Structures are given as C-alpha cells and as structure tokens.
Amino acid sequence: MRAWISIVLTAVMLSVSGCGFKDIDKRYFVLGIGIDKTNDDTKPYRVTLKLGIPSAKVEPGQSNRSQLISQDASTITEAVRLLKSKVDKELDFGHTKIYLFGKSLAYDDIQKPLDWFVRRRDTQMIGYVAIGEPSAEKILSTKPPSERLPANALIMSFNGEGTESSYIMTERLSDFQRRITERGKDPYMPIIQMSGESFAILRAAVMDKHRIKLELSEQETRVLNELLKKNKNFELYTKSGKDDFAMSINRFGMKYKLLNEQVNPKIRMTFHITGVAEESSRRLHSQDWSRLERVAAKQAEERFLGLLRRLRDHGLDPIGFGLRYRAMGHVSDDEWQKWLELYPKTEFDLQIHVQFVGTGSVK
C-alpha cells in the first residue's frame, strides 16, 4: 500500500512541475483587455492587451511599467494565440479587471467578444466593462502621472476605493452578461474618453442586447446612476425665481410598482431624499424650509421624468421595469410580447419627498 501511495504522489508532483504549471516569473499578467473593430472584413477584431511589468520600487509615475501589444484577427481566440508569439512569457488572464469595447464595435455588435470573455474559465466575472472612446486601444495606452501600478487608475475609478463621483457608472462583467441574456433589463456601459495624458468618465451608453441604442449626456448619466445605484453622492441643484441653491444629498431611497399594466400602464415611483445646503446665493436659515423642499422636489421630478421618458421612447429599460412585470407572473412569450407593446405607452407617476435638514456650517 505504501508503495502505491509513493507512486501516486510522485506522479502528482511530476504533473504539477511539468508543463501544466509555470512559475510567476514566467508569466505576463494581463491587467486590461481592449477589443476594437477594424476596417478589414477578413480581420474584423483588434485585440489589445495591457501587460504589467513587475518592479521592485513602487512610486507614482515611476513604477507604472507596462507593455501594450495588439493584434488583428478574424476571431478573438486567434488574436490571443498570435499575441502569445509576441511575448516571451505565458499570458495569465487571472488578474484582468478591465474589459473595454471600442466605441465603433459597441455600435456594431458586442455579442461575439462578450462570449469570449464569459467562456474563458480564467477571466474574472467581477471585472469592469466599459466603452473606450475613440478606441479601447487608446484608453489602455494612457498612463496618468499619478498612477502607481499599470491600469490601476481605471480600476480605482470603478471599484470605489479611490474617487467617488455621481457621473461614474460602474458595471461588472457578471451583471452585464445577465442583462444581455435576460428579458426585462437592458445593459449599459460607462464611456471612457481621452483627456490629455489621462481619461475622463462622464457619460454612459444604454444598449439593447447587441449594440448601443442611446448615448446619455453627462446630466442624464448622473440621473441614471442615481436611479440604478441609489447613489447618495450627488447634488440636487435648484433654481426657481429667487431660490438658487444646491443640496448635498446624504440619503436617497426609491421604490416603484406597476399599476393597471393590462389597460392603462402606469409606473408609480416614490422617492425619499434628504440633504443639506451646500451652496446658495442667499441666506437660507430664515427661509420657509417647507417651500424650499417643494421647489427642490419639483426640480427633481423634472430631472427624473426627462430621463425616464427618453429611455421609454427609445424602448430601453435599464432599470428593470420589464423584469418586475415578469416577476408578477407574466412569464410566457405572449405576455412578454404584450409588455413590449405596453411599455411605450407607459406613464410615470412620481411622488418625491424632499427633506431639508440643514444649511451647512453657516446660516
């Protein structure tokens, strides 16, 4: 028995030390992947990989050592195989956190590149997806002076450990895949733009199951971020007559329900918003706070209604009203087709409750 155990252990050690395992110094860690559309129909995809080069010294702007390699091919798989011939180490996708689609590709069809991402067993579904403008390759080539590690600036922009902005929308690969394959919830992605030596993330695009259908403005992106994430890190700017002030929101709640979905479809949405004055053109402490709350609620209603109606008119539903409809028991194909006919006729009934709790550190 001991002889058999020794033989088995020897076989396991030989298999581990063979070609199935490579030491860390024989690997290239892929930190970001970008896929663009080319003008060559025979090689429609350009795959770009951002490879981190290990460094013993970590300083902003100094240790940001990376290598960018690109390859055109007819498939993503072929491009990766060709890219392996350009490096001297094995490509390791286990640390990839950034998945970028070029804007031209996002307007064409992202199904095939997305399929490659989710099928590989070594890709992280917790990675972040985004659109690169003008291209994914250009965004991956950026090296912000403050960046300490390759691609770390992009990762920190999305994971919440660094900057927190109401304009930055975050979408993980796992949720994006669910939205692509599931009825009732349309996908979206943030748009990353070049900005000098760095980048800016101010807008987002809403998609159907294949491509971009609507690009949002900066203000629309912020509103959608509020509705999707219930993000409280935003400001509510109010201007009406002599009232000109901005509220910093410290509490934001939203819930909704579908009413009379078979006859006159209506979606009632209830908001509870609490905040303090962060900027004002005049003293607010002696004002009628209830009146200020009504004015702020009215302006908030206009912001929300403008975006909701625009999404509805384009047949897009990133919030998931259709998924709520299916959860109510409407799961057959005929009932889903009925929802697709009802959604363009849907009206929104917004009930917004704003609570003004302070004027900041001054009256």
Rank of each mutant, 00 (worst) to 15 (best):
R251D: 14
V331K: 13
I69F: 00
H330W: 02
E293A: 13
G132R: 02
N264F: 11
I155Y: 11
A11V: 15
N264K: 15
A11P: 02
S166R: 03
F271E: 06
F245C: 06
D115Y: 02
R2A: 10
D88Y: 08
K230N: 14
G18W: 04
R282H: 13
E218S: 10
D115I: 00
E78L: 11
H95F: 01
D41M: 05
L259Y: 09
E90W: 10
R310V: 06
I53W: 01
S195L: 09
I35R: 04
G253Q: 15
L305T: 15
G34N: 06
G94Q: 07
L236M: 13
P60L: 09
S361N: 08
K239R: 14
E59F: 05
H353D: 15
L100N: 08
L292S: 11
W4L: 15
I35C: 03
K26N: 14
S157H: 04
K298M: 10
V331I: 10
E335Y: 06
F117R: 01
I76G: 01
V206N: 04
S217I: 01
R2L: 14
I53Y: 01
G329S: 10
V263C: 00
I98N: 01
L9F: 13
L224K: 01
R291T: 14
S85W: 00
Y343R: 08
N39C: 02
E341L: 13
M1D: 09
A297T: 04
E182K: 11
F304D: 05
T238P: 00
F21D: 00
R310M: 12
R65L: 07
A300V: 05
H314C: 08
K112A: 11
D109V: 03
I126S: 12
I155E: 13
R178C: 06
S70L: 05
L236G: 09
K229R: 12
Y107M: 09
N233V: 01
L68M: 10
V12R: 03
F101V: 07
R211M: 09
T359E: 12
W116V: 01
S198M: 09
K84M: 00
L83F: 05
A106R: 05
Q193S: 12
T10D: 00
Q351N: 15
S55L: 02
I168C: 04
G306W: 10
V276W: 08
